[in-house]
Amino acid sequence: MSEYNFAYLDEQTKRMIRRAILKALAIPGYQVPFASREMPMPYGWGTGGVQVSAACLMPEDTFKVIDQGADDTTNAVSIRKFFEKTAGVATTEETARASVIQTRHRIPETPLGEDQILVYQVPIPEPLRFLEPSEVETRKMHALEEYGLMHVKLYEDISRHGAIATAYAYPVKVAGRYVMDPSPIPKFDNPKLGDCPAIQLFGAGREQRIYALPPWTAVVSLDFEDHPFEASKAAADCALCGAGDSYLDEVIVDDEGGRMFVCSDTDYCRARRAAGHVGAQGAPEGVA
């Protein structure tokens, strides 16, 4: 695909996106409008993340893509191949080796470092959207810091269900100012958002918004004093690597509905097995 520029987008467009990213980093949690381009993958499939990645990637970067925590899910494969073709950058499945990681719906289990950028794909960047459909109105609410309605939603959850019934895309308050949608990551991942040494960038292509968490930003999951936020996961250990601290996928394994739990972060699970950890149903690496 030599007829396309490095990382697909032309330099003018990348500069425009970089300006938006810098502004987003300067105002943590604020949604910066940007002129999202039409990408060769559909809206809703990571166009925002792809554009942010394209603007960040340098020829010497090592790129990793995950979807649902896994490197081998179809959309992750598709995006990784896109950048292999258009940017020719090195790719990896190892979190620790990647300099830019694009993700959909997860934060890697392996702690990120200062020299890494995590790029999130965001479908609906507006945390207030389902409380207030009008964009004109929600921008005003952010500007005036009118977030009472957000807590009304959480209040309603508790009065109806006895608990806050938001399991993913759990809203957070950034640096004491903006309420932000962390993208549809499970709330298990929310604690990893704050005080993170890596740069975290969020790209919403269809909705034309970029926002960011600079390194070491304070991020608080919204809650009530008497109903505090709780990061939750399945009460089990990974059947393959035995990890008790990682987010688990539930897999149905037979016709009777028998199920097992395995790490959603495939790289984390692989690395643990390589280091000799074995779960209840796992076999040491190299045997399977």
Binding site: Q68, T73, P186, S232, A234
Partner: peptide, 13 residues
């Protein structure tokens, strides 16, 4: 597209 991570968290909730 796969949404099983989000669905998993809903399932548990």
């Amino acid at each position: 597209l796969p949404h099983y991570v989000d669905f998993q968290s809903e399932l548990e909730l």
